[in-house]
Design a protein around this nucleic acid. Sequence first.
DNA 1: AGCAGATAATTTACCGGTAAAACGACGCGC
DNA 2: GCGCGTCGTTTTACCGGTAAATTATCTGCT
Lengths: 192, 192
Amino acid sequence: MTATEGPPATGDEGPPDTGAAPRDRRDDTVAAVVRQWRAVHPGLDTGPMEVIGRINRCAALLQQAEDAPLRRAGLSRAEFDLLGALRRTGHELTPSELARETFSSGAAVTKRLKQLGERGLVERRGDTRDRRVAHVRLTDAGRDTVDGILPAQLAYETAVLSGLDAPERGELAALLATLLGQLEGRLGALRA
Amino acid sequence: MTATEGPPATGDEGPPDTGAAPRDRRDDTVAAVVRQWRAVHPGLDTGPMEVIGRINRCAALLQQAEDAPLRRAGLSRAEFDLLGALRRTGHELTPSELARETFSSGAAVTKRLKQLGERGLVERRGDTRDRRVAHVRLTDAGRDTVDGILPAQLAYETAVLSGLDAPERGELAALLATLLGQLEGRLGALRA
DNA sequence: AGCAGATAATTTACCGGTAAAACGACGCGC
DNA sequence: GCGCGTCGTTTTACCGGTAAATTATCTGCT
């Protein structure tokens, strides 16, 4: 993923001239970017950037972190998403359903299914009533793969969130839930 | 971006048999997914999923939303990131610096610079001392483009966050800042 | 029955990103 | 001052995603 408004500036290059504020400890890269914008455009309301920039940056870092355990198992995130959808729903899904579940296009699902099928992780059968639709299910190997990865994945996630204590995590989850509720409603409405 | 653990299940398909809980109002898609996982793997600690899944999903939706105003101006998010980095630092940057600022690979920066150069938004000059390095700066047109887009972008962001009141936004920003600080420290350490 | 339009899945063409190699240029040690 | 390791940038080959066109099938209408 790309980071909309998040850059690093590792901090130890130190060009002393530019309008770069000292960047004292305990502050993240997004804060530094926001400072830069404010210096250039003093009238700007940078409030939203502090939230959105951080969400994007966190997502980028988290995804990067989570890719490590997956690549060990020879899966991409997208492939794991697909297998995970099948695993957690517990039943067969059609390609279109998989596309909705994984928020991706039908074409992408088709490609991934082909690969996963060749690797023996999923199987497909045609619908008897409607010959347009296919039903996809996990093979035993596919199920075992997901179940094998999942604990490691969750352990990784726990470790990566360890910087927050339990109440903080809860608060964060709650705030994100309300935001997400709004976004899904709002954008879902736009889409419909 | 792909959504690691976030799927929708629009809710109104209603296969009554599956272990799909009723999904009462006021709850987001991530909550539904977490419920599915818990039903299949009752022993699982789904705490981290509630945070990470929502961050990923929010990021995906926010980025999708923010792309709209950019495409009006004929820019991709990555291109805008690049121009933005030049604009907010206020001075020339080398391709490697741009890569760091935008969290992307040097190769990607090279490609984007070529395109943006052809469109007259950036200019390059070679370093006089070290003929390996190039210095990239915004043209007047490039600066105007960024300054023209930015207000609309921020307005969009404000609108999109309007579901949260000011104190909530502040709290969210603060929590994300601590998390981000941890992540950047931790992963930066792993990288080094 | 038979056709018009919708729908599920796939195919095609292309675009942007990355990893790895290539290229040119620097600078240090001897 | 000559070579060797390194660095900044670009090039190459390829991979995965999407949008739009395509194929096959179903549904409803008359």
